[in-house]
Write a protein that binds this DNA or RNA. Structure first.
Length: 575
RNA sequence: GCGUCUGUAGCUCAGGGGAUAGAGCAACGGACUUCUAAUCCGUAGGUCGUAGGUUCGAUUCCUACCAGACGCGCCA
């Protein structure tokens, strides 16, 4: 736990045991790990289950809890310790907690929760990575927004992040596209239809290839030509790529997501040979059925395909080349790959190959998998043209938001921009609110519902808080005078305790590469705040009371904005 | 066949060795002349997939099974 610059009550209690209780049989770290938040707040704010001590001292846990209680004196942050059955429950000193947490927020503001855990080390985050010549659809949303959130999160924790959009701009799909273009397409049609036309050709290819498998061979030949720099093939490839990139850029602009590098698969084309040679030198490469592979039998995995029988590369080859390049270029402490769970085996395989090549940093290659997106009962399929385009989804949610604004707040200035922030926020939050690994079913009804645990709910709560602060022109100031003891309502105290948890939550989110931990935290913060909002009037006659509550409102507003920012969601001041 | 992931309220999901299993949606009943009702309060709703095992204690860990999703050589 070390030197946490944020208030850490668990650490305080663990220290208390070492310095005051002594002779407890467990060290500070063990006690720290044992401390948990009780299921019901009435019981206390933190609890130490005493079962483990029972074994050490051969006494019933409730007796131990009582003995501990007798030895624990109150300290500035811990008001009391009460033994309840086999638990020793601690109650925070509410005034001290409120004072410490709120002053911290007044001082750090939009940096509340930030830490220098990374110490400037580099993390490469590989995310989004759409395939060129395929439309950007809801299936690409997860990678894009999870990666973006991790980028912001690790930056907030002191790492230097390198966001890489590893474009799928290489591979047999281009052979397929060129084959389809030559057979059923035309220059004019592509110029007019752009990515829609490319998608039509791609779908057409798969329809026809089912009837006539020879097309697959033709496609492979075309890809081979691209790899060998055939001029006709290269020109078409470049053209298709440009069309796609423009389309993707529109979506990234709406989402406000940027990358530090867009070195895609094609970028590594000239780095493949060196990898293959290195594999050969290290005696890892074998011939099998005409292809070149790395055998992984002894690791319980199928072989990793390095070269096809026609000598062209595969995605594992390019991934290895990319990893070597990135290590050399960025000297990363971690390289995260945000892709679907379907690719788990692929990553395990080539991570192992890198390890077998003798690179100890293979352990720093981390796959961050996420579940599938389905379309209400049906599977998403680019090949069958069965997709919801991300651009359509975003435009629809923005439109819907505008309708709601016109209904609820018609006089709002800057409606268009706010509708965009809220509509896009709804989509991003929807993708980040549940555990990465879960499969999700896309539903328009859910996507357009802005009630309850949604992005707009968080933004609305933020806008409400802003509204109060605006009415009195509240200015944050680290020397601001306020009386924490005035925040003695249950609802206000609950908010303070939840604010206290924020730094702990974002560290947990980074440890698990799980933005949904932040999402859920923000929902609980907003729920607590809205409870407070209904129960306690902020703008009141009693100026000291008002001041204390204003500080609380400011703290909530700030924490919500910081948290939303880490998710890649805007926090408008009015809506 | 082998492997991975998932199974908790009608639906979508939290929780993840410990004290009576929590939210939201949908349903029903309340609260706007008062800081934005995209809100809040209340009611109802669960043999935590099934069976064993480990443990003082299992919804949580282990094993088997069931169900669903996915992956297993020249697609990415």
């Amino acid at each position: 736990m070390g030197n946490n610059k944020y208030l850490d009550c668990k650490e305080i209690i663990a220290t208390l045991f070492v310095t005051e209780v002594k002779m407890v049989g467990l060290d500070q770290d063990e006690i720290y790990a044992l401390l948990e938040y009780p299921p019901d707040e009435k019981l206390g704010d933190l609890a130490l289950p005493c079962f483990k001590f029972s074994k050490i001292f051969k006494k019933p846990p409730h007796v131990i809890a009582e003995e501990f209680q007798a030895k624990i004196a109150s300290s500035p942050y811990i008001q009391e310790a009460i033994a309840i059955g086999p638990y020793l429950n601690f109650r925070f000193a509410p005034n001290k907690l409120a004072e410490t947490v709120l002053k911290k927020i007044l001082t750090t503001r939009e940096r509340y929760g930030a830490q220098n855990i990374g110490n400037g080390r580099n993390i490469v985050i590989d995310y989004s990575a759409p395939n060129i010549a395929k439309p950007f659809h809801v299936g690409h949303l997860s990678s894009t927004v999870i990666g973006n959130s991790l980028y912001k999160l690790f930056t907030f924790l002191g790492y230097n992040c390198v966001g890489v959009n590893h474009l799928g701009d290489w591979g047999t799909q281009f052979g397929k596209l060129i084959t389809a273009y030559n057979k059923w397409g035309s220059k004019l049609a592509v110029e007019e239809g752009l990515i829609q036309e490319l998608m039509r050709l791609y779908v057409k290819f798969h329809e026809e290839a089912e009837k006539d498998p020879v097309l697959e061979d033709e496609a492979r030949e075309w890809f081979n030509k691209i790899e060998n720099g055939n001029q006709e093939a290269m020109e078409l490839w470049k053209w298709f790529k440009e069309i796609s990139l423009e389309e993707f850029q529109k979506v990234y602009e709406i989402l406000d997501i940027t990358f530090d590098s867009t070195a895609g698969e094609s970028f590594y084309n000239d780095k493949i040979e060196a990898v293959v040679n290195e594999l050969k030198e290290k005696n890892l490469l074998e011939e099998s059925k005409g292809a070149s592979i790395v055998n992984l039998d002894q690791y319980g995995m199928p072989p990793c395909l390095i070269l096809k029988k026609d000598g062209s590369s595969l995605y594992a080859t390019r991934d290895i080349a990319a990893a070597l390049y990135r290590k050399k270029t960025y000297n990363f402490t971690k390289n995260l790959y945000v892709t679907g769970i379907a690719q788990s085996l692929h990553f395990q395989q080539w991570f192992k190959v890198v390890e077998l090549m003798g690179y100890e940093w293979a352990k720093d290659l981390i796959h961050i998998p996420f579940g599938w997106v389905n379309l209400e009962g049906e599977k998403l399929s680019t090949r069958k043209g069965k997709v919801v385009l991300l651009e359509d989804l975003l435009e629809t949610t923005i439109k819907r938001t505008l309708e709601i604004i016109n209904e609820k707040n018609p006089g709002l200035v800057g409606k268009e921009e706010i509708a965009k922030e809220v509509g896009v926020g709804a989509v991003i939050f929807g993708a980040l609110s549940v555990n990465r690994i879960k499969d999700v079913t896309f539903s328009w009804e859910e996507a357009l519902n802005f009630d309850g645990e949604t992005g707009p709910y968080l933004q609305y709560t933020h806008a409400r808080a802003c509204s109060i602060l605006r009415k009195v022109a509240f200015e944050p100031d680290s020397n601001l005078d306020f009386e924490p003891k005035r925040l003695d309502d249950q609802a206000a105290l609950k908010v303070v305790k939840t604010l206290y948890l924020f730094p702990e939550k974002i560290v947990a989110a980074s440890n698990e590469y799980e933005p949904s931990i932040i999402s859920r935290y923000l929902i609980s913060l907003a729920q607590d705040f809205n409870g407070f909002y209904h129960e306690c009037q902020v703008l009141v006659e009693d100026k000291a009371l008002q001041q204390a509550r204003l500080v609380l409102v400011y703290a909530v507003k700030t924490t919500l904005a910081v948290g939303l920012g880490l998710l890649g969601i805007k926090a408008p001041e009015r809506m």
